[in-house]
Amino acid sequence: MSSDNIDIRYVAKLARIELTDDEVERFGRQLGDLLEHAKTLHELDTAAVSATAQVVESRNVARADAVGRCLEHETVMQMAPQRQGAFFRVPRIISEDS
């Protein structure tokens, strides 16, 4: 089984997980094996089959537009790994995509 088709570093970048070289090697191999197994799905004829996103078919579940309670500001801020006054603080943002 091969793992040569997975660019594990690229995937880790998308997933925002820093990997050690050892992890790159190990996960790369394991994911390769798993995908190899996943490829058995291609044996399955699904030409006439639609995709199932949810097993129980339900529709139009929505709520009325009414205001409810918020969390207490202090409860919220106590969770913050780093805060500055009433704000959450994070290190500088380099990428400008939003």
């Binding site: 925002r16 997980i17 820093e18 969770m79 913050a80 790994p81 780093q82 959450f88 994070v90 290190p91 500088r92 943002i93 380099i94 990428s95």
Partner: peptide, 19 residues
């Protein structure tokens, strides 16, 4: 992601902090 709650390991910038 270390922004609002739970573990954070600091980094030079937000991307590094996430990773």
């Amino acid at each position: 992601d270390g922004v609002r709650y739970g573990l954070r390991v600091d980094g030079e910038d937000v991307g590094q902090m996430y990773e």
